[in-house]
Design a protein around this nucleic acid. Structure first.
Length: 591
RNA sequence: GCCCCCAUAGCUUAAUGGAUAAAGCAGCAGCCUUCUAAGCUGAAGAUUCCAGGUUCGAAUCCUGGUGGGGGCGCCA
């Protein structure tokens, strides 16, 4: 937000170095001044001092030299334009903002830009974010939540950063597991219909049953292959059953997406990739990249390490077709990657898929490179995230039916939230309470998925997931509600054309400081693919707002102060709402 | 056997290679006659897993350990 000011200091720094025969400064690193009631930016001169020592070959005390340099620079700068105060402290150059002018700049840009505040200029590039990828005929559980929430938030953040986004979903509606489920259904549940509620649980239960039955049934494998063959031969009965059961799942997924507030621009299906995948595999065999071992009753594979002449085991072997000629998901992923670029002009194609698939994507991407798609391959990015476990490091398993169902979690969170809303704010009518309960309950379960490093395993337990206090989404929502409840009382007033100035309280300056950081946070979150930067800022902003709320009366303040604070409250509400929107979390007006 | 990830307060987690390692939860002591107390203020709580190394400077980078998790030819 303060690029101009930074650039002007940077050019002063270069002049300073040149005049003294110092090495040219490398990229100047700016950081936020540690907040102590004043607001500004800071850079350090340690690097410059170290570079100087290296250049001259003299042994010097770097911290001492950095202190000297910062003092010299501060003296030369005097009172640079755009700043209120400059100081040199322990090798740092600290530049303090003229509070009234910068405050006005921050608040005005928030209020003018509104819901666009924080958005960057268009980058003129299109990025596809593929996420969710649920498997039909299986349960939708809390393990899938992290992917869904993370993918949706990343898409929002990249969009805000200036990319054009294609939100893609890749439905797992094909493969052995599907026919395993159908096999069990035909044998034990023929004619049964799914229940009205929790379709995916019923699906998942039958899948777990299929897994158990298959282990006990030596003829099962052959029967499943037979179903597969009948599907392939376009057998009416199997095709119809396949379509019907698949649709049950898809309807269940759509219901969940609706509740979660998640949408997609493009759906891909595994079942559509099978045919193009086989064609592509044939080409790979012809090119000598894939090895057809079917004559020896083996599969079709890509022996990546051998092809690359590596001694170590790095890429290993990617299996594309089974020995019976049916295709595997590695082959489908090759076809899918090509399909995406055929359809869209993409700057990047991101796959939000859990970390256990890392080797798989490494293999798929490398195979595409070897097949002559090196340029395309460079645009593919697997964004891994760690899994969600149950307490005691228990792995959530569809196969064993050990799951916490997503629908159940949403229901529990919503009803818990409804009880708390009723207790905290008994005046609300039932309809409003229901609405707020939904907003708060969903927010509470989404937030922890976004507020930690993706490299860390998340543990799901009911107590933490349903704890609405402290560092959690309801805290941020509550700050938004508080701001709103002040503004609600002055809806009829016309805000002044220009915000009056007044002596700012420490808590006001800190709040403005945090609000001003949103545009940078968006760019950084997008560049690093980390939603964490937004959750951190949202929480910090909410905390600063609560502090302000406690320290500074708004409605009862002197007219000028009152008018200024109303502007600050409006800007705070906007900044909080924008952060929450990026995270895919709703900002209630009341709770 | 090979590869990847993780380790920070009792617990869950933050922290551009930079100033005194920051929050929440749990526990302790306070604050509602004021815009919603889902809040705020205190006090307490850390040898950042260990040993080396790089650097003016390391929780952060490198090497080697220890402990835990994950992946590795016909599931997705």
């Amino acid at each position: 937000m303060f690029e101009q000011e930074k650039l002007s200091i940077e050019s002063e720094l270069r002049a300073f170095c040149q005049a003294r025969g110092l090495p040219a400064p490398t990229k100047v690193q700016w950081s936020q001044l540690p907040f102590s009631g004043e607001w500004g930016i800071s850079t350090s001169l340690f690097q410059l001092a170290a570079d100087e020592a290296r250049q001259t070959g003299n042994k010097i005390n770097v911290p001492q030299r950095a202190a000297e340099l910062s003092e010299g620079l501060a003296a030369q700068l005097g009172m640079p334009g755009g700043f209120a105060r400059v100081e040199a402290v322990k090798g740092y150059l600290n530049l303090y903002f003229p509070v009234p002018a910068y405050t006005a700049r921050v608040l005005e840009s928030v209020l003018v830009e509104g819901s666009n505040y924080g958005r960057g200029a268009s980058k003129g590039e299109r990025v596809m974010v593929e996420f969710s990828q649920p498997n039909t005929l299986k349960a939708f559980h809390v393990g899938h939540l992290r992917n869904m929430i993370l993918g949706a938030a990343l898409a929002n953040i990249l969009e805000a950063a200036g990319y054009e986004i294609v939100r893609a979903n890749y439905i797992g509606d094909f493969g052995k597991d599907v026919f395993k489920w159908l096999w069990n259904y035909i044998k034990r549940h023929k004619g049964e219909q799914p229940p009205k509620q929790d379709v995916t649980r019923w699906m998942g239960d039958l899948y777990a049953e299929a897994s158990r039955e298959l282990e006990a049934d030596p003829a099962g494998e052959a029967e499943i292959r037979d179903l597969f063959a009948r599907y392939d031969a376009e057998d009416d009965e199997i095709r119809t059953l396949y379509q019907t059961t698949r649709q049950w799942s898809l309807d269940g997924f759509n219901e969940i997406y609706g509740v979660m507030g998640i949408r997609f621009d493009r759906f891909y299906y595994e079942s559509e990739m099978e045919k193009p995948a086989k064609v592509f595999v044939e080409q790979l065999v012809e090119k000598g990249i894939a090895l057809d071992e079917r004559a020896q009753n083996g599969p079709v594979v890509v022996k990546l390490d051998e092809l690359l002449d590596l001694n170590e085991e790095k890429y290993r072997v990617l299996v594309l077709l089974r020995s019976d000629g049916t295709s595997l998901y590695g082959a489908w992923d090759l076809a899918l990657a090509l399909a995406k670029f055929q359809e869209y002009d993409l700057h990047k194609s991101i796959y939000v898929v859990d970390v256990r698939q890392s080797l798989h994507f490494l293999q798929v991407f490398k195979t595409l490179e070897l097949a002559g798609y090196a340029d395309l391959m460079k645009k593919l990015l697997h964004l891994p995230y760690e899994v969600v476990n149950l307490p005691g490091n228990v792995v959530i398993s569809s196969r064993e039916g050990v799951v916490v169902l997503l629908e159940e979690l949403i229901r529990e969170a919503t009803s818990r939230s409804a009880a708390i809303v009723g207790e905290k704010n008994p005046e609300l009518d039932a309809a409003t309470r229901g609405k707020v309960a939904g907003q708060v309950g969903l927010a509470a379960i989404k937030y922890p998925m976004l507020a930690r490093e993706t490299t860390k395993i998340a543990t799901f337990d009911w107590e933490t997931a349903l704890d609405f206090n402290g560092q959690a989404a309801p805290y941020i929502q509550y700050a938004h509600v508080r701001a709103n409840s002040i503004l609600r009382r002055v809806e009829d007033e016309t805000p002044p054309a220009q915000l009056p100035t007044h002596q700012l309280d420490k808590s006001e300056i800190e709040l403005i400081n945090l609000i001003s950081q949103l545009p940078d946070a968006v760019q950084r979150a997008a560049a690093e693919y980390r939603t964490l930067h937004i959750t951190n800022l949202a929480y910090e902003t909410a905390r600063a707002f609560n502090d302000f709320y406690n320290q500074c009366p708004v409605l009862q303040a002197e007219p000028a102060t009152r008018a200024f604070r109303l502007g600050l409250v409006a800007a705070s509400r906007q900044a909080l709402a924008n952060c929450l929107a990026l995270l895919g979390i709703q900002a209630p007006d009341i709770m």
